[in-house]
Amino acid sequence: MIPLYHDFTEEKVMIFGGGPVGARKARRFSSEAHVIVISPTFSKDSFGTASLVRAAPSPSDVHEWVTRADPTLIIAATGNDELNNSIADIAHDNELLLNRADRSKANSKENRALSTAYEVMTPATVEDGPIQVAVSTGGRSPALAKYLREQIETDIESAGAMATLTADLRAELRGRECSPSERRDAIRSVVRDPDVWKGLRTGENNARQEATRVIRNTMGGER
């Protein structure tokens, strides 16, 4: 499998299943997409800003629900194998992206054989501002994916602020008389400087001033 980001802005995601897994998927996608969750019952978990539709569609009803909503992604998160299989068939027939929650916990030969070209996985993610890191074990070990996500959360602390700072610095350096390689080296030096990171994380020093110092030293003085 190859990781691939997809922009779901203004797109629809349809989730079948109102349990904890369906709620987690709804929270994940409702930050960007319009999410519709169909289920006869809903857990007490938060579903984000998703629209909840209380209904119990049978396998033969799935096609009508999907046709009516016209989603980009369908998520099968019910506890009914027959219903999940019907959802998968409809997604395949209509060339829609599909995520099957009942396959994310195993990587058996049977599951690999049943997967389709339209089936996708939703990896564990860590975000800090514009920075987003995804971790997947290919369904082999959700516990490991969670552990790695927790480790990465600490490692990328203030990475979002660093991204914003270096974006501003890159824009400013384009206005100076320096070569692209000099600008690149200067920004790399800022990203690798511990004092700049310390300023972003603790506020004990001015990160912007530290970054300016690093650039000045890297480029040999003001230009």
Rank of each mutant, 00 (worst) to 15 (best):
M1I: 10
M1N: 10
M1D: 11
M1A: 12
I2A: 07
P3H: 09
E10D: 14
V13K: 08
M14S: 12
I15V: 13
F16I: 04
G18A: 08
G22D: 08
F29E: 02
S31G: 15
E32L: 07
A33T: 06
H34R: 09
V35I: 06
V35N: 09
I36V: 13
I38E: 01
I38H: 05
S39G: 04
P40V: 11
P40F: 09
T41L: 10
K44H: 11
S46L: 01
F47S: 11
G48A: 07
T49I: 01
T49S: 14
S51P: 00
L52N: 04
L52V: 07
R54I: 01
R54M: 11
P57W: 06
S58Y: 00
P59G: 10
S60C: 04
D61L: 07
H63E: 15
H63T: 13
E64A: 15
R68L: 03
A69T: 13
T72E: 13
T72D: 02
L73R: 11
L73W: 10
I75S: 02
G79N: 14
N80G: 04
N84Y: 08
S86Y: 04
I87Q: 13
A88S: 14
D89C: 04
I90M: 01
N94L: 15
L97F: 15
N99V: 03
N99I: 04
R100Y: 05
R100D: 05
A101R: 08
D102Q: 06
N107C: 07
E110P: 00
E110Q: 09
L114C: 03
L114G: 10
T116Q: 07
T116G: 14
Y118I: 06
Y118N: 07
E119S: 00
V120L: 06
V126P: 00
A134N: 12
A134H: 03
V135Y: 02
G138A: 03
A143F: 01
A143D: 12
A143Q: 09
L144Q: 06
A145I: 08
A145C: 05
R149L: 03
E150R: 14
Q151L: 11
E157P: 01
S158M: 01
G160K: 02
G160C: 13
T164A: 08
T164C: 01
L169M: 11
R170Y: 11
L173E: 04
L173V: 05
R176M: 09
R176D: 06
S179I: 04
S179L: 07
R184D: 15
R184E: 13
D185R: 10
D185Q: 09
D185H: 12
I187Q: 09
R188Y: 09
V190G: 12
R192T: 04
D193L: 08
D193V: 05
D195E: 14
V196N: 10
W197A: 10
K198E: 14
N206L: 08
N206Q: 14
R208V: 14
E210N: 00
A211H: 08
A211R: 11
R213I: 01
V214D: 03
G220F: 00
G221C: 03
G221L: 07
E222W: 10
E222F: 02
